[in-house]
Amino acid sequence: MDQFIEQIVTGLSIGSILLLVALGLSIIYGSMGIINLAHGEFVMLGAYAAWVFHTYLGLGLLASLVPIFLVVAAFGWVIERYVLSLLNNRPLDTILATWGVGIMLQQAVRLMVGSELRYVQLPPALSDSMSVFGIPVSSYRVFLFVVSIALFGATWLLMNRTTVGMKLRAIIQDRSVAASFGINAKRVYALTFAYGAGLAGLAGALVSPLKSVSPDMGTGYVVDAFMVVVLGGVQSLAGTVASAFILGELSGGIAFLQNDTVAKAIVLLAIVVLIRFRPEGLFTARVRA
């Protein structure tokens, strides 16, 4: 029984990291239809930002979260403005363009700070462990879980309870009609992309104490994040949350029964089959087109 609960908790922990990484991607893909292959690099930038703030400015991880969000969001804004906004009617080409941007970011980081692994310290306040259902869990993982849910809540509020969110939803429904009502679609898109990038940066900063930081750390995340978004359904934030935890539990569980490689292969296969039969994802109610 203890083992079972332990598995559940491990799954929740994997799931919260998945959610952190996938949330930004879900916003960008769901609202703009852009397949952002540079997403992993935004995660990487966030992790490096955490490292830079810590080593050069002496800022702790928690204190630097807000500046990290802003820095990576600025990167996202520039990329949307000068690259992606030129590709309005060519969704497949956004895959290529963002991949090129990703390579540039990765390479620029490699040239500037080198390709050796970097380590970010756990916040001292969260470095002990606590007991969840009688199972000892590192406090930081609990913290990640809480933060990921909080960020989801903030994003939901932003989308559904603010003017910018309303404008964005209007553009998603019909860009030209929204524009004729005086909504500046370009600006809203740039802000959306910046927000998604900022979230990815936060994700990178938050996972950096758990994994080593390297220029190519993003590649793995972007694939996982995609699977989460596709499984959850493209325009469904709640679906993203559900699928992040489903995938987390699934990979945790299969990895326990078999091994990591088999877990990954089976999860991927399941997703391939799902796309074939339910391309709109598990949790999307059909909306009127």
């Binding site: 690259v83 290529l96 363009a97 991949w99 090129g100 941007v101 990703g102 390579i103 540039m104 390479q107 620029a108 040239l111």
Partner: peptide
């Protein structure tokens, strides 16, 4: 790096 830029 140049390759990435060229590609974009």
């Amino acid at each position: 790096l140049v390759m990435g830029a060229l590609f974009v």
